[in-house]
C-alpha cells in the first residue's frame, strides 16, 4: 500500500522541551488516520512539521513524496491546524477567494466549498461576526479548496455543537473515501473511533502504538454461547491454544488467537454444540488509550 506520509525519527526541540521525540509515522493512501494523544503530547507540533510550518530539529519526513513544506506537496493537500484563522475584516467568501488567489484555484471553487460546509447563507458576512463553529466550518472549507488528495485536520470538531460535530464527522468520512487520505488529529476518542480506519497513539512526543482501530480495540478475549454449555466448555478447554476459560452470565469467555477462532467454531459444531454467539470482546478506545499512555508514564 502506498504510504502518503512517512516520518523517520522526526524530532522537535524547543529549548529544554522535547516536543516530538524520534517519531515514526506512516499514513497510507486512502485511509482516515487518527493521531491520538493527550494535550501536549506533540500532535500539533507533528502536524506543523508535516506542513512545513516548523522545521524539525532532527529526523526526516515525506508528505506526498515531497519534503514537508515543499510546494509540490502543499499543492495537493489541505489543512486546518488548531483554531481556524482568517482575516476578520473580510467576509467568509472573500477569505476563501483570497486563498484561491494564492493557490491559483478558480474563484468559483470558493462558492463550491462554502456550499459543501453549509456556509453559503453567511458567506458574505464578515468573519469577525462568525461564531467559533462557523469559523471551524470555514476552516474546513479552506482545507477543501484545492480538492486535496490529503486532508490534515487538527481538532476539526472543536467549538461545534453536537449536531455540528456529527455533521463534521460525516463530512470527514465522506471526504476520506476512495483515494483521498485524511490525517485527523484529536484528543476526542469517540470522534477518532467513529471516523478513523487506523490510529497512532502519541504520548510525550513518542509514538506509542500505531494500528487499525479494530486491532487496537481487539482484546484477545472471545465470547462463546452455545448449547449444551457443558459440552461447549469441555471442547473449549481441550482446544489447543485456548486459555483462561470462564463462565460469565451463561456464556463462556476465553482467550485465543484470533486466527484460530474458525477452527474452534468447527470443533464446537463437530461436538454437536449449537453455537449462538461467537465473537471477540472489544475494548473501548478510551481504555486502550489510557492503558497505552499509562504504560508510557510507568
Amino acid at each position: 500500500m502506498e504510504q502518503i506520509i512517512t516520518t523517520h525519527k522526526l524530532s522537535k526541540r524547543y529549548g529544554d522541551v522535547l516536543a516530538v521525540d524520534e517519531l515514526d509515522l506512516a499514513v497510507n493512501r486512502g485511509e482516515v488516520y487518527g493521531l491520538l494523544g493527550p494535550n501536549g503530547a506533540g500532535k500539533t507540533t507533528t502536524l506543523r512539521m508535516l506542513l512545513g510550518l516548523v522545521r524539525p530539529t532532527a529526523g526526516t519526513a515525506k508528505v506526498l513524496n515531497a519534503p514537508p513544506g515543499a510546494q509540490a506537496g502543499l499543492a495537493r493537500l489541505g489543512a486546518l491546524v488548531e483554531e481556524p484563522a482568517f482575516y476578520p475584516y473580510l467576509s467568509g467568501r472573500d477569505n476563501l477567494r483570497l486563498l484561491a488567489r494564492y493557490t491559483g484555484v478558480s474563484l468559483q471553487r470558493a462558492d463550491e466549498v462554502l456550499e459543501r460546509v453549509e456556509l453559503t447563507a453567511r458567506a458574505d458576512s464578515k468573519v469577525k461576526t462568525y461564531s467559533l463553529g462557523m469559523r471551524q466550518r470555514l476552516g474546513v472549507a479552506a482545507a477543501l479548496l484545492k480538492d486535496p488528495e490529503l486532508l490534515v485536520l487538527d481538532e476539526p470538531t472543536s467549538g461545534l455543537d453536537p449536531r455540528g460535530m456529527a455533521e463534521m464527522r460525516a463530512l470527514i468520512r465522506s471526504v476520506g473515501t476512495g483515494e483521498r487520505t485524511v490525517l485527523l488529529c484529536s484528543h476526542l476518542l469517540g470522534e477518532v473511533e467513529q471516523t478513523c480506519d487506523r490510529v497512532g497513539v502519541i504520548d510525550e512526543g513518542r509514538m506509542v502504538r500505531q494500528a487499525p482501530v479494530a486491532e487496537l480495540r481487539a482484546s484477545g478475549r472471545f465470547v462463546v454461547a452455545g448449547e449444551p454449555l457443558e459440552d461447549a466448555e469441555r471442547v473449549c478447554r481441550q482446544f489447543p491454544g485456548v486459555s483462561d476459560v470462564e463462565i460469565v452470565g451463561g456464556r463462556l469467555e476465553l482467550t485465543l488467537d484470533a486466527d484460530k477462532i474458525g477452527d474452534l467454531n468447527a470443533a464446537l459444531q463437530q461436538a454437536g454444540v449449537r453455537v449462538h454467539e461467537l465473537r471477540q470482546l472489544e475494548r473501548s478506545l478510551e481504555s486502550v488509550f489510557l492503558e497505552l499512555t499509562e504504560e508510557e508514564e510507568d
Binding site: 506543523r48 506542513l51 512545513g52 510550518l53 513544506g69 510546494q71 502543499l74 499543492a75 493537500l77 489541505g78 489543512a79 491546524v81 488548531e82 483554531e83 481556524p84 484563522a85 482568517f86 482575516y87 476578520p88 486563498l99 494564492y102 493557490t103 479552506a142 479548496l145 484545492k146 490534515v152
Partner: peptide
C-alpha cells in the same frame, strides 16, 4: 496577531 500566516502558508505558496 491574527495567526493567518499558517492559513496562507499551508495553501502552498513558497
Amino acid at each position: 496577531r491574527w495567526n493567518t500566516l499558517k492559513t496562507i502558508a499551508t495553501q502552498g505558496p513558497p
